[in-house]
Design a protein around this nucleic acid. Structure first.
Lengths: 384, 384
DNA sequence: GGTTGCTGCTAATTCGTATTACTAGGTCGA
DNA sequence: TCGACCTAGTAATACGAATTAGCAGCAACC
């Protein structure tokens, strides 16, 4: 087994000291260490010939940068189920990393339990990367607060609520070095679901809809809560059909007719575990004419159920998709609603991380606007 | 900045040496160092109270491996065009890496020129990883031979021809440690296209087809060549419709009617740049009743063209897909032919890399069999 | 001719952990 | 009373790269 090449090997081959190799490698031109071109070239030649690169672990041990960005996904990335949804984020991340000349480290070593990964397990390798991007529908508050507390450089893809920082964290007496204020907030690049949802909801009212409903958890993950919030801004008394979960009956906005709604921290199952036909029946029973669905895939299920029942979309029922499909969906109807700027979120997240790493002062919480989609599933209700 | 808690801190608090902390932590019960229960408990208590965990970087520094597998893709991974095709490979890779507790490093830093990446550019970072997996339709021979020459541990996903190894490789005197022979061949986990293609071709003849054609480059990438080879085993005189490329008219098997066929190293464009209707016309003109298409997406185009022309598949024309679609394809017909065991290839490639890294003796070239698909596009020709 | 200053390097130290080698102090046996 | 042997630990070192301090050789200058 060929052992890893070290700076000492390079040094031997170039007939210099290990120190010199390091100096050349890091382009150190400080007064104390000027290397003449001849020596420098000799060293660089050997490096090129051998393909030597510094051991990332040794570098990180000394707090150096590695040009490696970590990507931590709270669910595995590549299974085809979630693939279509994750992909655009990663596409943006990949593109942007490429422009910056960075490699991406996927933390596949984090053990998966109950379908989720956790950053903090006994042997987490976050520090190999210069900083990391976090992806996932829902990220436990403990994880976020610990990341912030440890001052680990990271950016969340997707808005996250600020965890309450337990300030009584390190009784052993923090060995402070400098007056640098702690970032009190979670850095993220998210999508402005509130505005987008409010906009499309307003549009439905403008078209004449009076009885509207929101279908989806509406709480748990920030992305869900934000959408419900946008919906409520315009339709405070609109119906909310959450997932089936008797454990936590929520009663959100006063006077609003919330029916269930909870989230155990994992991705919500399709339509919260109900049959599309049942959901449809309930909606129709309540006289609803326009439905706002968190997940486009659920909208598709409802459309199918409606068609099966002899109804026409959007004449008999308008369907609005508050985002993209989280799982593959048949048919090629264009749903009214909006798209999540996933690729752009990925790109900007990388940019923000880079800014943080290079100490640049910048707003660390960003919301991108969603792209509204005219589509063909929202129209004036039949009666008009 | 609260600096990380170290073993020295624990040692100080427990009034022992750092060595003792390490011994306790790792449960070292070797004769040379037995720690009495009292001391052990004292140390463990401090560890519990402080929530100390060992820095994984420092641990790994002492071992030879970093638990990082590189993933080098000759085209960017995430763009949606190639996504559907790459995905299953990566799915298998991710799963397997997870089981081994390894992280995956995507070499996004390799600059993309002409839509491709190259491993060997002036500042390649391959050696950050313990070893790497290579993915791509076509991998230049120079790259492979250099990887082999440098004894870099890697596994190709997909069969590769052995490049002619220039044995005058390492004049600097190889630092051999042991009499271990150099691997003379490119390690890979591939799919057995030859057998699979031969099998489905034979099936077509068994059904009564006499005039058959192969559509696709048939050379360039190993995967293309293998399929054509399998086809030729059964149908030595079958028609071959390659891509339009006047630069290299190949005349492969003697007596065979090869019509063009070349590959500039990039993924072949759909149907080699021809119009599906033109290709269809040529096939029909030659009296072909069964067509074997390298790319399922091309088969779909042909099916569409056939339908447009009023023909029925498979009654008027049988279509066989020699693998999966390299780009998204509309419609949900199940094509006769076979599937590439992509996920399994990914899994096995990781396993093979791990075996190589741990010095295990094992066959370094593997071919997995393809899964035959009965499908609905291959049937006896009309006349029968 | 002795000090200063510059050039071109290198020795030594650091990061946090694991391992190896060793030591101080005691017991036992002959 | 000496050596062998055990116990309970610790000092020293290694891993690979970066940094700090410093050294040898030479030139310039008063």
């Amino acid at each position: 087994m060929t052992t890893r090449l070290t700076q000492r090997d390079i040094a031997r081959l170039a007939k210099v000291s290990q120190t010199t190799v390091s100096l050349v490698l890091n382009n150190r031109t400080a007064a104390s260490a000027r290397i003449p071109a001849e020596t420098r070239d000799r060293v660089l030649k050997v490096i090129r010939e051998t393909g030597y690169v510094a051991d990332p672990l040794a570098r990180r041990l000394l707090q150096q940068r590695n040009q490696i960005f970590g990507v931590f996904t709270y669910e595995p990335v590549f299974p085809s189920a979630s693939a279509d949804f994750y992909h655009p984020f990663l596409n943006g991340i990949e593109e942007s990393a490429e422009e910056l000349g960075c490699d991406l480290l996927l933390f596949t070593s984090a053990p998966v339990t109950d379908g989720r990964r956790l950053v903090f397990h006994d042997n987490n390798r976050l520090r190999i990367a210069d900083g990391s991007l976090l992806l996932g529908r829902r990220i436990p508050a403990e994880e976020l607060s610990r990341l912030v507390a440890e001052k680990y450089p990271f950016v969340s893809v997707g808005r996250r609520d600020d965890p309450d920082l337990p300030e009584a964290d390190n009784p052993a007496g923090r060995r402070g070095d400098g007056p640098r204020r702690a970032r009190a907030t979670v850095p993220y690049v998210g999508a402005d679901y509130v505005t987008a949802t409010a906009t499309v909801t307003a549009r439905a009212f403008a078209l004449g809809h009076e009885r509207v409903a929101f279908v989806g958890p509406g709480e748990g993950a920030e992305s869900s809560a934000d959408r419900l919030r946008g919906f409520r801004q315009i339709a405070p008394r609109g119906l909310h059909l959450g997932p089936v979960d008797p454990s936590r009956q929520s009663s959100a906005a006063s006077g609003a007719e919330d029916v269930g709604g909870a989230d155990d921290g994992r991705a919500a199952p399709a339509l919260g575990g109900r049959e599309p036909t049942d959901v449809l029946a309930e909606l129709l029973g309540q006289g609803v004419t326009a439905v706002f669905v968190e997940d486009l895939a659920d909208a598709a299920s409802l459309a199918e159920a409606a068609t099966a029942r002899g109804l026409t979309v959007p004449d008999d029922l308008s369907l609005v998709a508050l985002g993209d499909a989280s799982r593959p969906v048949a048919g090629d109807a264009e749903y009214s609603g909006f798209h999540i700027p996933r690729k752009e979120m990925g790109r900007q997240a990388v940019g923000l991380l880079e800014a943080i790493l290079s100490g640049e002062e910048r707003e660390t919480q960003q919301l991108l606007s969603c792209e509204l989609v005219e589509g063909s599933t929202l129209a004036a209700p039949k009666g008009l």
